[in-house]
Computed example of a mutant assay.
Amino acid sequence: MGRSYGDSCLLKDGNLLVTTSMNRLLSFDTTTGLLTAEAGITLGQILDFAVPLGFFLPVSPGTKYVTLGGAIANDIHGKNHHVAGTFGCHVTQFELVRSDGSRRLCSPTENPDFYAATIGGLGLTGFISWATLRLRPIVSRMIDYEGIQFHGIDEFLDITRQSQHVEYTVSWVDCASTGKNFCRGVFMLGDHSKVPAELKPSPEPKLIFPFDAPGFALNHTTVSLFNTVFFHKQIKARVKALQDYEPFFYPLDKVLRWNRLYGKRGLLQFQYAIPWENAREGTVAILGEVAKSGLASFLAVLKAFGDVPSPGLMSFPQPGITLALDFPIKPDVTFPLFERLADMTRDFGGRLYPAKDAAMTASQFQTFYPQWEQLARFRDPLITSSFWERVTGDKLAL
């Protein structure tokens, strides 16, 4: 869909392969939940088909405007990583078309090396033409939701430990506040409702952000005010509700072109995964550095990754804590901050998410992903990206 926050889906002075017209459903088995579709179909289109039949995605990111092929290429993760692992864990097979015209059926048992390299391989190993995904059954659109306010990283970690039995967990964290409000947030938990209810497709979103906001609109003061309001909109410390899956999984999707809020220069996202042994210390240090910078993110997502292994060679998640922050682009401030944060992530033994990156250096990437040289051996000789060229120096000789 071209919606990666960085340049993994771009190529300067090159040709882009656009797959969104390849969006046909090819087969679906209601007994096993196995769905086969062309790789240009979006997760939203899969949901429109599957939800009325009583099925849901096994793993979903924070937007449904992602193609099936893109979900595989970035080995996306969701709020249930601690129980379900990454998207690739649920892909049973796919066809990989190479630039020499060859077609490979890839699965854990057939061409397993290409299967592993392609899951999380950033689209570099070839063209995914179709894939088979195992869906999970549901009986309702509704989510049994619980929201819990927390004050500080230790409360977040306590709730995380106590909620391992809940399928979906994620937190919003206030990264603008300091002092007694440092690292306060709202922990959000959910399970698919077990009470049967009407299953129907979602309506199309009607709200569109109408213009590019001025560059000064998102500043430390306005974000701090937003964060205070957001934290206190939940009047009680703990609330329970029955919530439709759309606002639970895809709160931003209800406003099309929401990215215009960041102005004409756009936004950068910084997302790390730091292993458990350094997760608390690293999160406190990085949030402190963000608070010092004068920049602030109101879309700050904090959650725990589990230990379900991915079949992908280059998968991003690892057991520990992940934090995702969105910032408006202010060249003299944002990029230096990102370099400092990436170095801090490296020092704490973590890594950054290539699917959302526009700033990490070659040395940082190669430290985070020492297996990149193994991926390079599977890269299609006629396929590259601006991201790959930036972090490896490996350019096509055409």
Rank of each mutant, 00 (worst) to 15 (best):
T31D: 13
T32P: 00
T32V: 05
T32M: 03
L35K: 07
L35T: 07
A37F: 03
A39F: 13
G40A: 02
G40P: 14
I41E: 01
T42L: 12
Q45S: 00
Q45D: 05
Q45F: 02
I46P: 09
L47I: 10
D48A: 14
D48K: 13
V51D: 13
V51R: 04
P52T: 04
P52L: 02
L53N: 07
F55Q: 03
F56W: 14
F56I: 00
P58A: 06
T63Q: 00
T63R: 13
Y65G: 00
V66I: 15
V66S: 12
T67Y: 14
T67Q: 15
L68S: 12
G69L: 09
G70F: 13
G70T: 09
A71R: 12
A71G: 11
A73W: 02
D75N: 13
D75I: 08
I76R: 09
I76M: 14
I76W: 00
K79T: 06
K79E: 05
N80P: 08
N80S: 15
N80T: 04
N80R: 13
H82Q: 08
V83L: 11
G85F: 00
F87T: 02
G88S: 11
G88N: 03
G88K: 01
H90M: 11
H90Q: 09
V91E: 08
F94I: 10
F94G: 05
E95D: 14
L96S: 09
S99R: 00
G101L: 08
S102I: 00
R103H: 14
S107D: 09
P108I: 01
T109W: 06
